[in-house]
Design a protein around this nucleic acid. Structure first.
Length: 264
DNA sequence: ATGGTGGCGGTGCCA
C-alpha cells in the first residue's frame, strides 16, 4: 500500500499536475493540504476520471485538506477533535480495510505560526497539543496509523538548509520542535528519517529568492507512523523532481510503501 | 533592477 502526502498549494491551479502525478506515482492514498477551495469547487470529476475517490474538508480561499483513494474511505473526522470553535479546515481522518488490518490515515495541515510574537504562534502550539492527544488516543486502536501532512515544523537542524538563519522562525523554534517530539515520544516514527538517517533532504522550497535553484529547502512534510505501521514500513521517499516541473507547488509529494494490500 | 513569489479574490492577507 502506497500512501503519499502533498501540499498542493491550490488544487484548482494544479489539477493537471495532480492528475499527472497520480498516473505516474500510482498511490493507493494521497493526502492533500492547502487545496484553497470550498468542497463544491474541488475538481472531483477530473480526479475520479483518474480512478480516485475524493473526500474533502475545504474552506473558502485558504487552508483545506482532502483525501484521495483508490478504494472507498470510511471518513471518521473532518476536523481535529478537541476544539469545536476552530473553524479552519486543517484535518481529515479516515480508515481503510487492508490485508494487514485497518489502516487509519489523517491529512494534516498544521498552522505555520509566524510571526512568533502574534496569536498565530500559540494557535499553532495549541493545534499541536490537540494533535498529540489525538495521536495518543489512536494508539489504543492497535491499527496501522499514518498521520501525514504539512507539519510546518523542521524536526532538527538537519532539516533546514541554513539552521542559524531560521532559528527564530516558527518552523524551527524549540517550542515547535518539542511539540513534534511529544508525538514521536508517544511511539510514532518519522518514516523518512527512519529510512534515511543521514539525508539532508527537503520537501519545500520557497518561491522567493531562487530557493529551488539554490536548494534552499526545508523538510516540513512528514508521515508519522504508529508502531504497527512502522513494522510494515518498506520504503519512504520524497518526490523532489516535482518541484522542477512547470507551475509547481512550493511543496513536493512524500510517500511511504507499507507491507499491506488495500481491499475493496 | 523604485523590483522582489505566488494564490486567492478583487484588497490586502497568508504562507
Amino acid at each position: 500500500m502506497k500512501i503519499a502526502t502533498w501540499n498542493i498549494n491550490s488544487v484548482r491551479r494544479r489539477t493537471g499536475n495532480l492528475v499527472a502525478w497520480l498516473q505516474r506515482a500510482q498511490p493507493d492514498v494521497l493526502l492533500l493540504q492547502e487545496i484553497k477551495c470550498q468542497d463544491d469547487q474541488f475538481p472531483r470529476s477530473e480526479i475520479e476520471a483518474a480512478g480516485y475517490r475524493c473526500a474533502v474538508a475545504g474552506q473558502k480561499g485558504f487552508n483545506g485538506v482532502a483525501l484521495l483513494s483508490r478504494t472507498a474511505a470510511d471518513i471518521v473526522h473532518r476536523s481535529l477533535p478537541g476544539d469545536d470553535s476552530d473553524g479552519q479546515a486543517r484535518y481529515i481522518e479516515a480508515r481503510f480495510a487492508t490485508s494487514a488490518g485497518t489502516v487509519r490515515v489523517a491529512s494534516i495541515y498544521l498552522p505555520n505560526g509566524n510571526p512568533v510574537d502574534s496569536d498565530k504562534f500559540p494557535y499553532k502550539l495549541g493545534f499541536m497539543r490537540r494533535l498529540c492527544q489525538r495521536a495518543h488516543d489512536l494508539l489504543d486502536s492497535e491499527e496501522l496509523v499514518v498521520l501525514a501532512g504539512d507539519y510546518n515544523v523542521c524536526p532538527t537542524a538537519m532539516d533546514v538548509y541554513d539552521p542559524a538563519a531560521w532559528a527564530n522562525d516558527a518552523l524551527c523554534r524549540p517550542e515547535s520542535r518539542q511539540a513534534l517530539r511529544a508525538i514521536l515520544n508517544l511511539g510514532y516514527t518519522d518514516a523518512f528519517r527512519a529510512l534515511h538517517p543521514d539525508a539532508h533532504a527537503y520537501s519545500y522550497w520557497d518561491y522567493q529568492g531562487g530557493a529551488w535553484t539554490k536548494d534552499h529547502g526545508l523538510r516540513i512534510d512528514h508521515l508519522l507512523l504508529s508502531p504497527q505501521a512502522t513494522d510494515r514500513l518498506k520504503a519512504c521517499d520524497i518526490d523532489k523532481s516535482e518541484r522542477g516541473r512547470p507551475e509547481p507547488s512550493d511543496h513536493v509529494p512524500v510517500w511511504i510503501q507499507l507491507d499491506a494490500e488495500a481491499m475493496t
